[in-house]
Design a protein around this nucleic acid. Sequence first.
DNA 1: ACTGGCACTCATCTGTCGCGAGTGCCAGCG
DNA 2: CGCTGGCACTCGCGACAGATGAGTGCCAGT
Lengths: 339, 339
Amino acid sequence: MSEDRRIAVLRAIVEDYVHTREPVGSKALVERHNLGVSPATIRNDMAALEEDGYIAQPHTSAGRVPTDKGYRLFVDRLHGIKPLSPAEKRAIQTLLDGAIDLDDVVDRTVRLLAQLTRQVAVVQYPSLSRSTVRHIELVPLGAHRLLLVLITDTGRVEQRVVEVAVDPSELLLGELRAKLNAAAVGQRLTAVASTVAGLPESFPPGDAPLVRSVLEALEDSLAIEREERIVLAGTANLARSGPDFGRTISPVLEALEEQVVLLRLFTEMADDTGDVGVRIGRETAYEGLAETAVVASGYGSRGEVVARLGVLGPTRMDYPTTIAAVRAVARYVSRILAQ
Amino acid sequence: MSEDRRIAVLRAIVEDYVHTREPVGSKALVERHNLGVSPATIRNDMAALEEDGYIAQPHTSAGRVPTDKGYRLFVDRLHGIKPLSPAEKRAIQTLLDGAIDLDDVVDRTVRLLAQLTRQVAVVQYPSLSRSTVRHIELVPLGAHRLLLVLITDTGRVEQRVVEVAVDPSELLLGELRAKLNAAAVGQRLTAVASTVAGLPESFPPGDAPLVRSVLEALEDSLAIEREERIVLAGTANLARSGPDFGRTISPVLEALEEQVVLLRLFTEMADDTGDVGVRIGRETAYEGLAETAVVASGYGSRGEVVARLGVLGPTRMDYPTTIAAVRAVARYVSRILAQ
DNA sequence: ACTGGCACTCATCTGTCGCGAGTGCCAGCG
DNA sequence: CGCTGGCACTCGCGACAGATGAGTGCCAGT
């Protein structure tokens, strides 16, 4: 019993099942794929595959269905990624080239991914923690209020209103602005908190409270809650995945709203490899996503990963196409951000 | 055949159907509500109600189900809105009082609404067109770039990077900043475009291109596409509405992503009345929402409606409770925004 | 105007049954 | 030793039929 053929059988089962959405039997297999052997032989292979936990049968006298482990092997042994069609490549290019700012890039990307893969698309905003400070601005609003604006090298702008006890003079403001920028520009956002820590001492004691309020707001702007935003599109595709998936749709929608879950998942997957990562079913380690697979990739300017994007759909998805699409989009977005 | 009792019967049918999710018959009606008459009498009333199109039967030998028209009458004749429980009131207050800025207010509001009504909650960001300019700021970023920041009286901040041919002097920038604010502060956003139109002429001809770029960006910031953002929560509640609603979930999810549809709907509903408005089923005039009802209300500071919020769910929803919740939340949010 | 009675309609449920897809095993063959 | 054809077996599923009962409409009576 050749090991290679067993893999081929598994692949055939996965492909057929993804296509037909129905358990696939030995006879149908030999008809649709020219494996060169008889159904009986396939049956032996299938028995072995089931023994090893790669496939399972929903009930006796039904065909086989891939298990999470089966999909996993299928994905790992996947050498020939399907390239995108020229039309798809053009669509990516024209759509993304028209973007005018970061918000627009993210928005277009997530829609594009959803349309391309017919799955739920997820795009994480470029994380603040990895990027650096380009500029900090302080704007007096009057009535004891200042506006603190933080601009990062990824083009992201974070602003925040600071309440102060007394309105500072334009002179003081200018000095604070200058010192803040001197200390922070070019630094990673995670490092900023410490590099500006000593600032209050360099001001007259009377002004220290003001400086402290501003620094507090600045640190707030860097806080995790703000930095890790994600955007979704294509949730309607979930319902289209067939009525059988309808039962599991509710927990998935919950997971999508619980952005924390997605963020954790995305972050973990970044460790896997620099390339596209895949989590299948229970590998997601989240009950609500037990029948869901996640395909994700990092993206960012200058080769460094600043955030992630990907799609989410039933474990029964077309992995080769989906992986190719996610990879292509991640690369294009990275290229756009590089400028 | 008393007209009043027919209304009472309709109300009983709606209440029972909302509760049990099953067609309701004459016998069950007299058992659960003390109408003081026999099933046979009820049957006559029901026949009349069906004649007038307020109820329908899915098939012979089944009970009656309210039609859109039936729900409509039910809602219109609804005088006694259920007040919220004290616990709910407290929940609203404590949750919303903790908000730190506009984004946070909107975020908390939408989650609150979803939790309170167990429906899909929708909150429209305070529209720029109705609000006024509080401040405009110009920040040099270097490398031929300026940051334009626009702050409105609702606390919303809109920023935008402007590409310029030459970096302006600090002096020129200060003058432009001063003139912009003099012309725009206090104005409605819709009026700003015209009040600043004459600005380029008040500068030396050499600086006009710069001024024009900035004005262009400013007008862009005011453009409709940006102003009309909406935020969702509780989409998972859709799937919980029962398996029968599962079939219609896909078009609804699509509609939710097509924010244009929701915006149009919300805007139309604002005309209805100053209070909470309801659209039931086909009244939404959108195919995908044929089995969906929308309950919405305006909110805003100082009594003027600057945006809308509401919920969306199956036509078979608990209108009294939902309307009460939407109204209460709208009022609290308005109060928060007033400060 | 309301009520009780009655005949009628069907959707739903249940049980039975046959079909057929699919399997596992085994003996035989190259 | 691996592959193949044959064969018995399992069992989910759809079709069919009959019983059930909820619910209705109508009518005569109070």
